[in-house]
Computed example of a mutant assay.
Amino acid sequence: MTAALPRVVSPEEWASAREALLRKEKEHTRAGDRLAAERRRMPMVRFAKQYELAGPDGTQSLLDLFDGRRQLIVYHFMLYPGDEVGCPGCSLLVDNMSHPAHLHARDVTLKVVAPATPPEIERYWARMGWTIPWVSAAGTDFPADCGIDGGFGVSVFLRDGDDVYRTYFTDGRGGDQFVGTLRYLDVTPFGRQEAWEEEPRGTDAPSSWWRRHDEY
């Protein structure tokens, strides 16, 4: 690490700089609140196709994935038939998934869906030590119908009785919002140490330093 350190100032100067930044942070928070409200007002599209998704407890439909709750978040994980390991970025995101009780309290179920076969997913989950619920989309149109073409993404679904609707989707940098590790790094002096950052603290390309947690 060769980046210059932050300036050393008096406690009074630090407090003034902190107050100035706090005003901008509050503006950013309010802008995020407005964006979240707009996201909630998005229209929805019906998903009526009957998919056969294979999980540890047998074959499930998209409706089954809700586990009786009204809302469902699906993370489309990059692990494909024949793969020995999953995508490092997807793995980082799953490492950051929280205890599901907090989502369940708000009527939300979180599931990870991968195109690999159940045995392949089971082996990789065992290596990573994950307990996050998963299902296999192998042999189904579900990833393609969600616009997943060799990548990752996050889909949100809403259940109205037995009818299922898709309300939201994001991929690319949209995935950053689900990775707590990145949020923590963003408040440190050296940041993510990637070349794109203002006043870059490193030369790494975005996400190029990510590893599976047992590979660092």
Rank of each mutant, 00 (worst) to 15 (best):
A138K: 08
W14D: 11
L72P: 05
D57N: 10
W134S: 03
K24C: 02
V156I: 09
L103M: 10
P118D: 02
Q71E: 13
A4D: 13
S10W: 03
D64W: 04
D163V: 11
N96K: 03
W210S: 02
G58Q: 04
T140Q: 10
D83E: 03
P81T: 05
L72H: 08
R106P: 00
D186N: 13
L53T: 02
S91R: 03
G161C: 04
V108Q: 09
D186C: 04
G147S: 09
Y80V: 11
S155H: 01
A138E: 12
R18Q: 13
S16G: 01
A54T: 14
T203M: 05
Y184M: 11
L62C: 07
L182E: 02
V112E: 01
H76W: 14
A4R: 13
T59F: 06
S91T: 15
L22R: 14
D160E: 15
T59L: 13
E197Y: 05
V94T: 12
D33Y: 06
W209E: 04
F47I: 14
P88S: 04
E122I: 01
H102Q: 11
E122A: 15
L103I: 00
L92Q: 13
G161H: 06
A126I: 00
S16Y: 01
L35Q: 12
R39E: 14
R166G: 10
P88E: 06
C146N: 15
I148A: 08
D141A: 14
G150F: 04
G147H: 06
L185S: 07
V74Q: 06
F142L: 15
D160W: 01
V45T: 15
P115D: 08
D67T: 04
Q50R: 14
L53C: 07
L185G: 01
V85P: 00
S91H: 03
F66R: 02
A37E: 14
V112W: 02
T181E: 07
K111V: 15
P143E: 08
E52C: 03
Y124V: 06
I73T: 13
K111I: 15
L110C: 03
E27H: 03
A195R: 11
A54L: 11
D176G: 02
D83Y: 11
A205K: 11
A3F: 14
